[in-house]
């Protein structure tokens, strides 16, 4: 099997598995989604259990296709999923899961992608500096601090940051993506407001992920520094700056770029908890609210979407990689 077709088949398997797991796991648990909502209503004393209610329940079962045989449900589920029709949200009934997802997505991508790229740039640069023999000692002293910080989950750091900067000092907003009451428009005031709200979540991601990139970069940089072409470049009398950026860093960056592509693919799943802490209206916040209101279709839809984004980005990396590094093609 060629490299290319193997990768594409694997992508297909991942998507199929994800859809199947999404279908099977909730059905293996006792009860069904409608039953769960009903149970909750009953617990709140909002359900009467009368004949009228039975009828409504049956109607809802039919609406969501729960009255069909399991196999029919499965096939229908697969077809719908492949058409990116993720069903209706239970708690916001007439709304479709995918439209809620698409509305939340720009916030997640904006926040996470920007902070990931910034963190990648800083981390790779400092990691390269750490492996470089002529680096000032000060750098070698403070970068390890970030490496240790990378062991801390970003949302825990996020809570501490919110408390310090938003609650105690009142410098920045407590949460959300823009001030409540403002209407999203494309003017400079709104943009500034969005940036002000983005600083803390972005900072908590930055502080905890710079060390990760530095660690990876240091590793590849050490290998590159041992190469002959680097000795040659130095022997030719090229300036330090030129050797560092043009010869060493440029080559060491290649594997890092792969990780960056995958990290960008995991942006959506990585965002979940940071958005919960900051009440940021992205995919993670959507998921948190869906979990709290037992909105199963929404939870499944978000889970499937998370798997899909990672699978797509891994596929893209796999397809691009042979172009970057011809040795991969076997």
């Amino acid at each position: 099997m060629s490299y290319l077709s193997r990768r594409i088949i694997m992508f297909g398997i991942v998507v199929l598995l994800a859809a199947t797991a999404n279908f099977a796991i909730p059905r293996m648990a006792p009860g069904d989604p409608i039953g769960a909502v009903l149970e909750e209503l009953r617990a709140r004393g909002a359900s009467t259990g009368g004949a009228a209610e039975q009828e409504i329940v049956a109607a809802y079962r039919a609406r969501f296709g729960l009255d069909q045989p399991v196999f029919t449900q499965y096939i229908r589920f697969l077809v719908n999923t492949l058409r990116f029709d993720l069903g209706y949200s239970i708690s916001y009934y007439p709304q479709k899961v995918e439209s809620a997802l698409l509305r939340a997505l720009p916030w997640t991508v904006g926040l996470l992608a920007i902070s990931t790229v910034i963190s990648f740039a800083f981390g790779s640069f400092f990691g390269a500096l750490m492996a470089w023999p002529r680096t000032p000692a000060a750098v070698n002293r403070f970068v390890p601090f970030f490496m240790v910080l990378s062991a801390v989950p970003y949302y825990l750091l996020g809570l501490i940051l919110v408390y310090l900067f938003a609650f105690v000092m009142r410098l920045l907003p407590l949460g959300g993506a823009y001030s409540s009451g403002t209407i999203p428009t494309l003017d400079i005031d709104f943009l500034l407001d969005v940036i002000r709200h983005g600083i803390l979540p972005a900072l908590s991601i930055l502080l905890t992920s710079v060390g990760f990139w530095a660690l990876g970069m240091r590793g590849t940089m050490v290998t590159v520094l041992g190469e002959d072409y680097l000795t040659l470049a130095e022997a030719k009398g090229l300036s330090d700056r030129r050797v560092f950026f043009g010869y060493a860093m440029r080559n060491a960056l290649l594997p890092q770029v792969t990780s960056l592509a995958i990290a960008l693919g995991t942006v959506a799943s990585g965002s979940v908890l940071v958005e919960v802490v900051f009440a940021y209206p992205g995919v993670g916040w959507l998921l948190y609210n869906a979990l709290r209101s037992s909105d199963y279709y929404m939870v499944q839809g978000v889970a499937f979407f998370l798997i899909l984004t990672v699978a797509v980005s891994v596929l893209v990396v796999d397809l691009i990689y042979p172009l970057l590094d011809p040795r991969i093609e076997r």
Partner: peptide, 24 residues
């Protein structure tokens, strides 16, 4: 190996969520 590579590309959180939300 195929199973390993496939599972590696699935974000565990996504599956965990579905499982955890189903297990009462």
């Amino acid at each position: 190996s195929t199973a390993t590579d496939t599972m590696l590309t699935i974000p565990p959180l996504a599956i965990l969520l579905v499982v955890a939300a189903s297990v009462r």
